[in-house]
Amino acid sequence: MNDNYIEIKGLYKNFGKLKVLKGVSCNIKKGEKVAIIGASGSGKSTMLRCMNLLETPTYGEVWVENKLLTPIDPYLHFDVIRLSKTYAKLSEVYKAEHPDASTEEIDAAVIADIKKNDLLKNYEGTAYRAAIKTLYKENFQQVDLSRRDMGMVFQHFNLFNNLTVLENLTLAPVELKLKTKAEAEEKAMDLLKRIGLEDKAKAYPSTLSGGQKQRIAIVRALAMDPQVMLFDEPTSALDPEMVGEVLDLIKKVADAGMTVVIVTHEMGFAREVADRVLFMADGVILEEGAPEELFNHPKNPRTQDFLSKVL
């Protein structure tokens, strides 16, 4: 157990031949505000999208609140290995070769052998298959459960086009039976009032401006009472005059104590809001540190180069 809310360990992501993430590790603590900066194509959005498994990493682990979200490796579960046919066969062989070995010794030797030589095959008997299936199912459900606690805001807003603003905010809490319809609507109206858009409750997304859409997308995520908010370039698709209203709202959310991870090109905003800034290039985190440190005294030449271009 530790106080990291999100833990990423050795994350790799390939899109076909394109290697987007090449071994990224980072931890995000509860209440922390982390900004991820870097040039386009550096993998920062992909990393953010791996945090709630909108992208499935090729290798590596994503832990949220000490729960593993990435697909489970059967080699990590000795109970499962013990159910396999290979295990049964090898332990017979081992027993024959070492007649006086204890059960623990056989177990340890066989499992070590299986793990080391990657001996598990696709079909390992029904008991093994059932155990794997249960594991995958739990893992699969855990992803949906964890996503409830991770609000995500997209570059292109992604409001549900077929629903009114109010329905956008209430759909998930009501569908997931976290709130009754009345409770959800009360909360939604409260949130809309806070951003001054309560008169748009019955409007459809197509009638709203970009800034309004993005602010509603933010409160849609907040309507789930998340533990962390992930922002994927929330202002990149906005007209310049609307950037301010969205950033103000994100700042309010951050100031209220929410854990925030934001991928952004707004350096001024990153410096103002973040506790920690990660600089990414070519699929790895090249430098990280407090904003003052990173923006004023970047150590890595790539960071210096990037900052000299954008600041």
Binding site: L54, D144, R148, N158, F160, L171, A221
Partner: peptide, 14 residues
């Protein structure tokens, strides 16, 4: 738009 599915999944809907 695939973003619609992503948005639905991101709030925990199946």
């Amino acid at each position: 738009d695939p973003g619609q599915m992503e948005a639905g999944r991101s709030v925990g809907l199946s």
